[in-house]
């Protein structure tokens, strides 16, 4: 799938590798997890906790909680507030969070 957003050519920041459901993704240093996911071209829709319908980030500024992801084993984190780090393990959430994750 082509991504909805693309980096402008002037963006020359170095890339770093993160993993999305185990798949390698090249993200740019300084991107938030949510931005990196939207630029990845992967299907990164999560399923909502209430009825399981698909959702993607909406506000990108920390208020809507639509960007919730599991990061390094911890669920329901706001992907739009957390910068990517090398080797980060990101999981797309399916419904409610699991206890212990």
């Amino acid at each position: 799938m082509t991504p909805m957003f693309s980096h402008i050519p002037a963006d020359q920041r170095p890339t770093l590798e993160i993993f999305v459901d185990g798949q390698s993704v090249q993200a740019r240093r300084g991107d938030t997890v949510a931005a990196a996911l939207l630029a990845s071209g992967l299907d990164v829709r999560r399923d909502s906790a209430v009825s399981g319908v698909p959702r993607l980030p909406y506000c990108m500024m920390g208020v809507c909680f639509e960007c919730l992801v599991t990061i390094n084993g911890v669920g329901n984190r706001q992907g739009c507030l957390i910068p990517v780090e090398p080797g980060m393990q990101v999981e797309i959430q399916r419904g409610k969070r699991e206890l212990g994750k």
């Binding site: 906790a49 209430v50 329901n76 419904g95 409610k96 969070r97 699991e98 206890l99």
Partner: peptide, 10 residues
């Protein structure tokens, strides 16, 4: 009272 986010039934 404290209320947490939703989690799968445990």
């Amino acid at each position: 009272i404290i209320v947490t986010e939703r989690v799968k039934p445990f």
